[in-house]
Computed example of a mutant assay.
Amino acid sequence: MSNSSVKPPYNIRGVPLYGFSSLSEFTDFLLPPQHPRCGMLVAINAEKILTAEQNPQVQQILSAAEFNYADGISIVRSIRKKYPGSKVTRIAGVDLWYALMQSAGQKCIPVFLVGGQAEVLQYTGDKLRQQWAVPVAGTQDGYFTEQQTEGVIRAIADSGAKIVTVAMGSPRQELFIRRCREIYPDALYMGVGGTYDVFSGRVKRAPLIWQKMGLEWLYRLIKQPSRWRRQLRLLRYQKYHWLGKL
């Protein structure tokens, strides 16, 4: 499906962004009845905006990605401030992946899973098949070498997968997706970070009440105090927000 006529409606600090009023609305947009949209999904939060401003490679990735979406509550609040009346809700990458996988099972859309540890990936693939009847076309753990990359990309292309999710951390996963798309553009690609660990139960997500309040970042900080430097860095983004430099 061509995306040329579909333009992201929002822009924060030079990054084009999609925003939707619900998770289901975004899922339906990405997986219309005829064919899944093709392109790269990138979850955008305040940290990624700041990283892009200091790293030209990341800035290039975000500028080229077809489907940047508001994953962080700070980004949602900035959209609402810059675009009064916009009905944008936070869509967490984990929740979006769950929704896409459920839809893939319902619509028989083949999926390829990349990244993570071998045992986690195996469990994730098996659970997807059992829980939602997802047609998993192939898997590849994240421990392949540069010399093996071309073969991994060829396996993805040969599988015929229409959704490819990559869990290798940012920006490595986005860089891999960019290379993969050069050879196999006919798929929807999504960087998913630690989502397989959450799905497999190895990592516990914040309680639902924390999620609804937009405080998952605080829950992670409490669980991992070493993240405080990352959170302190985000004060610069808050300055952008309050001064209206969006």
Score class of each variant (00 low, 15 high):
M1S: 14
S2Q: 12
S2M: 10
V6S: 10
R13T: 12
G14Q: 07
P16T: 08
P16R: 08
Y18R: 01
F20G: 11
L23N: 04
E25W: 01
F29L: 06
L30W: 04
L31E: 00
P32H: 15
P33N: 03
M40V: 09
V42H: 02
A46G: 09
E47I: 08
E47T: 10
K48G: 01
I49H: 01
A52Y: 13
A52F: 13
A52G: 09
P56V: 07
V58K: 02
Q59D: 14
Q60K: 12
I61G: 02
I61T: 09
L62R: 05
A64Q: 04
A65S: 14
D71N: 02
S74E: 14
R77C: 11
S78I: 02
I79F: 15
K81H: 13
K81S: 13
K81G: 07
K82Q: 10
Y83R: 05
P84W: 00
K87C: 01
T89P: 03
A92Y: 15
D95K: 03
L96P: 14
W97L: 15
A99G: 04
A99V: 00
S103I: 03
A104S: 15
C108F: 05
P110I: 13
V111D: 02
V111F: 10
A118E: 15
D126G: 13
L128F: 04
L128W: 06
Q130N: 14
V134Q: 11
P135V: 05
V136T: 07
Q140F: 14
Q140C: 15
G142D: 01
F144G: 08
Q147H: 05
Q147L: 07
Q148P: 04
Q148N: 03
E150H: 09
G151F: 07
G151C: 08
I153S: 04
R154T: 13
A157V: 08
A157I: 08
S159E: 04
S159F: 02
I163D: 02
V164Y: 00
M168R: 06
R172K: 15
R172E: 13
C180M: 05
C180K: 03
R181M: 11
I183D: 10
P185L: 10
P185C: 09
Y189E: 12
Y189K: 09
G191I: 12
V192C: 11
G193C: 06
Y196R: 00
D197A: 01
F199W: 03
S200D: 06
S200R: 04
R205D: 03
I209V: 13
W217Y: 05
R220C: 05
S226G: 06
W228M: 06
R230E: 02
R230N: 01
Q231T: 13
R236H: 07
K239P: 08
Y240V: 03
Y240F: 14
H241E: 01
H241D: 01
